[in-house]
Every structure is written in C-alpha cells, then in structure tokens.
Amino acid sequence: MIQLRGITKIYATGKVTTPALLGVDLDMARGDFAAIMGPSGSGKSTVMHIMGLLDRPTDGSYLLEGQEVTGLSDDGLAALRNQRMGFVFQSFHLLPTATALKNVLLPFVYSPRYPADAEERGRRALTAVGLEHRLHHRPGELSGGECQRVAVARALVTDPEVIFADEPTGNLDRRSTYEVMAILQRLNRDEGKTVVLVTHDNHVGEMCRRVVRLVYGRIESDTVAPQPLDAIALLAALPPREEDRR
C-alpha cells in the first residue's frame, strides 16, 4: 500500500542543514500493524510525517496505492489526508471548546461533501472507543486516556485505510496505554485497518506485529513478531481500579 524509496529529508534552518532521513526504503502492506522506533533524533517521527503526507521529503519516491504522491499539490495532499488517513497525536490536539462529538466530526468539515449521516458516524466512532457516554463532554472534562480515545475516534470517523499515530501513548498511564492499544489492535484485527505508530516505549513495541528501528536517519532493523502482546489480556491482568472495586 505504501512504498517509500530513497526518501531523504534535510531540514535547512538558515545556513545550517540538518539531515533527518538519509535514504529510507520502507513498505507498508495493507493490514500491517507497525511500530517505528528509535532514539530521539533518529528520524522516526519524520518518516511517519512523510508517510502521513504532513511533510514532504527532500528527495525520493513515495507511492501510495501505486500513485506517486511526492509531486502532488498541497490541496491534493490535503484531500488524501482527509479521505484515506487518520491521525492520532501524542498530546491529543482536541479542540478545547468543542464537545467530544464535535471533535470527532472535525474531518467532515473539510470533506468534499458533508455526509448526511455524519452525526450517526460520529456516535458510532465514539462507541467503538468505548465513549458512548461522553458524547457531549468537553476535553477538559475528560481524563487523558479518554481524550486520546476521542482522538482515535476522530481518526476513525472517515473510515480511512490507514491510521498514523505519533507517540499515541506518550502522555498516558499504563491502563490508558493498554486501552488505546487494545482499540488499535481491534481495529487492525477486525476491520483490517493499517496502523503505523511511532513510539519510544519498548512495551508498546511488543504489542505491534512489526517493528521498524531507525538510527541516524537509516533503517537499522525491520522485524516481525509472530506473537505480539495482546493489550486486552494485559488490561485484564492489571489490578482492578479503585472505583471498579467499589
């Protein structure tokens, strides 16, 4: 589905140029569940931003479903992001003044047509992340884990082929981490969504079927785990929460 060839990215700030990616070849197949890992400065976020069409490579080729996208206009990239991709960020990036449902419906503001059943789809997406009882809460009234699940629902609502998640569990405690990972694993397993996430947490990496490691802008290893950890099982093994015990 995604085919990167010889991708380089060089940041130029004034006269200083900082190379971030030095020729990356990487394929993502439909249905992959991949973690991109590496020390900070390895270029793992950059490679995901390029795959998610949030950033352009300095050089190289990117085929999305066989279509070269490096030459597309900004508007063309925006349309692809809108219709074929979903995004989850480390710090959620929800609109603080909008309800959970409004936040989830955000991608439809920019879709070519506003679907007649948009609200229904928003409810379904929030139900899929277990937040059907939080439709009209604002981010300030939700826990961090709940906020990130709203963000996952927002990534889901357009029914994209691939979900990109940049450190999705970076700001979460262990329980919320398992909850978010359980949702991503279920989307991958039951709905065949391709999931690409960036993390520096090895434990999160163990929940992914494939782990790509970057060092200094190059791919160091690309391994497949036959038996990734099941987030639901991990969640079940946690001691019960205070409020659950009562």
């Binding site: 998610g52 949030l54 900004d74 508007d75 925006a78 349309a79 992001r81 809108n82 219709q83 995004f87 960020f89 990036h93 609109l95 955000l106 991608p107 503001v109 920019y110 879709s111 927002r154």
Partner: peptide
Amino acid sequence: VRRAVGAR
C-alpha cells in the same frame, strides 16, 4: 490538526 484532517 485541521490541516492534518484535510483542511487546505
């Protein structure tokens, strides 16, 4: 975020 979800 708006740009990411498709705003031109």
